[in-house]
Design a binder for these strands. Structure first.
Length: 193
DNA sequence: ACTGCGATGTCCT
DNA sequence: GGACATCGCAGTT
């Protein structure tokens, strides 16, 4: 349990919307990289697309614990993706952080994304975000109230500023509209410009 | 602008 | 052994 556990003991869908606009703060080399969460997806135990759907395994155990911890998984042989564990203890639910808007520490992020010139391309996807913030499996199960990766809840984004769509990159439960992003924010994935 | 595909590790069947 | 909560590049239109 930590101070995030209680406010995040809500459904994955509610938490996914709640986390929009909140800050993700990564400490790297003594520098605080501050990012605003702009795109999320909900996953829970009843959902065939979730890693927790088939029950607890060593990899997914953290999702069955209290809210306010990270779940990081490795995918496609190359990339990591960062989730925030939400929901009550013993109910596996998580929010995939799909995109963030860097607010400070952009120069440090660019050392992790050496070929990227435009700021909006640094972390506009779940794999890119983990590259940008140097998040890997070592940070899975991490207490998000503590260094070097913290989540700070901010004022929720107004519901009229949240866009709801189908999730990206899954083959099961594709009909569920469990992806959420901040309207008109250019730092989301697949933004039309 | 759009489509296809290669890279590549870990987990679960 | 197959699927995978991805990305970036190459080729075509």
């Amino acid at each position: 349990m930590n101070s995030l556990s209680k406010p995040l003991s809500i459904s994955a869908v509610d938490a996914a919307k709640r986390l929009l606009g909140s800050y993700l703060i990564r400490s790297l080399e003594g520098v605080e990289v501050v990012c605003r969460i702009v795109e999320t997806e909900a996953y829970d135990q009843t959902d065939p697309a979730s890693h927790s759907y088939r029950g607890m395994t060593p990899r997914t155990a953290v999702m069955f614990g209290p809210a306010g911890y990270s779940y990081v998984y490795f995918t496609y042989g190359m990339y990591y993706c960062l989730n925030v564990v939400v929901g009550p203890e013993n109910q596996a639910a998580a929010v995939l952080i799909r995109a963030v808007e860097p607010l400070s520490g952009v120069e440090l992020i660019k050392t992790n994304r050496p070929k990227i010139v435009d700021n909006y391309m640094l972390a506009n996807g779940p794999g890119k975000l983990c590259l940008a913030l140097a998040v890997d499996k070592q940070l899975s199960g991490h207490d998000l109230t503590k260094e070097p990766l913290r989540l700070e809840l901010k004022q929720p984004v107004a519901s009229e500023d949240i866009v709801t769509t189908e999730r990206i990159g899954i083959s099961k439960a594709t009909e569920l509209k469990w992806r959420f992003y901040i309207k008109d924010n250019p730092y989301i994935s697949r933004y039309k410009r």
